[in-house]
Amino acid sequence: MEILRVENLSKIYGKGETAVKALDNVSFTVQKGEFIAVVGPSGSGKSTLLHILGGVDRPTSGKVYIEDTDIYSLDETRLAIFRRRQIGLIYQFYNLIPVLNVKENITLPLLLDGRQPDKSQLDELVSTLGLSDRLDYLPNQLSGGQQQRVSIGRAIISNPALMLADEPTGNLDSKNSSEIIGLLRLLNQKRKQTLIVITHDERIALQADRIMTIEDGRITRDEVIRS
């Protein structure tokens, strides 16, 4: 089942002579349950692509369909609600809300929807994340790995159609990195969670079903390594 379709996506920063083409006519599709690693040198447009897929940055031209919804045809409010329900974003620097505790950070997308999380579901999730005894902690009381796990929890809580991660292990030591990789892989396998991860970490890349290489805003390689 097709979960994501990208058509002729371009993103140009700046104007006139100083314009930089961050994405140049990119098209591809992603099936449900795929685990895609996006690799490429810095400045190649990986992050831009991810942000556009995540609905936080607007493309200059082209379309993004997530579960058949043209996300950039939505107005700002609907796009926000769409993000809340259909997209999970994970950043290198966790970007947790410092004033909310672990539980609130994880359930933030639900809270924004005015929902209460299902208790048993939440319990399962936090035990998978290994955060059961940290629910009341504030982000600054957690280690980097724990914070990243919280942000994974936040990304998965609403069962999003698409989970996007930008260098999720970029800021972590090797032990924490492998935990995070393991978690992502687990979510992908067990929940058939569609996952697109930008990474420089070859361990993640090797876990993926498909590796996409971006150079100068174009997809230069796209190979399925397992199916």
Partner: peptide, 27 residues
């Protein structure tokens, strides 16, 4: 079918959940 309307409110959440169930079912 896609019933999602991406709005605030319980009804919209219900629609969204139904959609997710649909996706799971179809899968």
């Amino acid at each position: 079918l896609d019933v999602r309307d991406n709005q605030e409110g319980e009804l919209s959440i219900l629609k969204n959940e139904i959609y997710k169930v649909t996706v799971t079912l179809s899968e």
